[in-house]
């Protein structure tokens, strides 16, 4: 089976410091992967590379069998079907919750198409559906800037859903959420993963366990261990550098 995402020997260095060092990672279509690792391991940088924010010095990054992501711009990568949630929630503060979702909704992206765009009934239905999922229905007309931290996280996840990407990159989605919300997020992501591939970065081990998927542990820019959560957390090196004790 063709892999959906293929990273091989990816190296990124900032002024000599190697944030990624020969990183390799392969993701199958429909697979969900949890990425863990200590602060500064390069998890966010890996997402930067995949989404075109950072250009690697060397290495291969292929999407969907053949598309070389290192040559594309951020927006082109996004339109290929790669969606991303940032570590720090970033929503459009001066737009309403509804407008935030409307912008994310899968639709033509060019300025002239958006100029003429009108929300059809199906679009409104889809947005309402997402609003129900992220439970922000009663806040739909509020400015996103006025939401709480957790609500912003949800809104961002909602935007990700609206985008209908084939691959979701989710950076620390449950930071700032209550335990109950964490559970819900895990359930939501599992749901999503039925139809698409997901990469989740998270420090919260309960959350990772709740996902119940294959885990990759990064350290100093390369893969330290890969496998089920139990096998990875039993790995002595992982214990030394990350899990502690």
């Amino acid at each position: 089976m063709e892999s959906l995402l293929y990273l091989d020997g990816v190296t990124v260095s900032f002024d000599g410091f190697k944030a990624l060092n020969g990183l390799s990672l392969v993701l199958q279509p429909g697979e969900m992967r949890a990425v863990i690792g200590p602060n500064g391991a390069g998890k966010t940088t890996m997402m930067d590379v995949i989404t075109g924010k950072t250009r690697p010095q060397s290495g291969t990054v292929l999407f969907d069998g053949g598309t070389d992501l290192t040559k594309l711009r951020e927006n082109d990568i996004a339109t290929l079907g790669i969606g991303r949630k940032f570590q720090r929630p970033t929503v459009f503060e001066h737009l309403s919750v509804w407008d935030n979702l409307e912008l994310a909704l899968k639709a033509p992206r060019g300025p002239f198409s958006t100029l003429m765009w009108k929300a059809a009934a199906e679009h409104r239905a889809r947005i309402n559906e997402i609003l129900a999922v992220i439970r922000l229905g009663d806040r739909r007309d509020r400015l996103a800037g006025g939401l709480s931290h957790g609500e912003k996280q949800w809104l961002e996840i909602g935007m990700l859903l609206a985008q209908e990407p084939r691959l979701l990159l989710v950076d620390e989605p449950v930071a700032g959420m209550t335990d109950a919300e964490t559970e819900q997020t895990a359930a939501l992501l599992r749901d999503v993963a039925e139809t698409r591939s997901v990469v989740v970065v998270e420090h919260d081990m309960h959350f990772v366990r709740a996902l119940g998927v294959k885990v990759t542990c990064l350290h100093e820019g390369s893969v330290l261990a890969e496998g089920s959560l139990d096998s990875v957390s039993a790995n002595q090196q992982v214990i030394d550098v990350y899990l502690g004790r």
Binding site: K53, T79, G83, F92, L95, L103, P111, T114, Q163
Partner: peptide
């Protein structure tokens, strides 16, 4: 229009708009 919302959005968080697939 929706294009106007994209503009407002990119004023506040340009790179986020890019990651939504808009050619800023």
């Amino acid at each position: 229009s929706k294009a106007g919302k994209v503009m407002t959005a990119l004023r506040d968080a340009e790179s986020r708009v890019r990651f939504l697939g808009y050619d800023v």
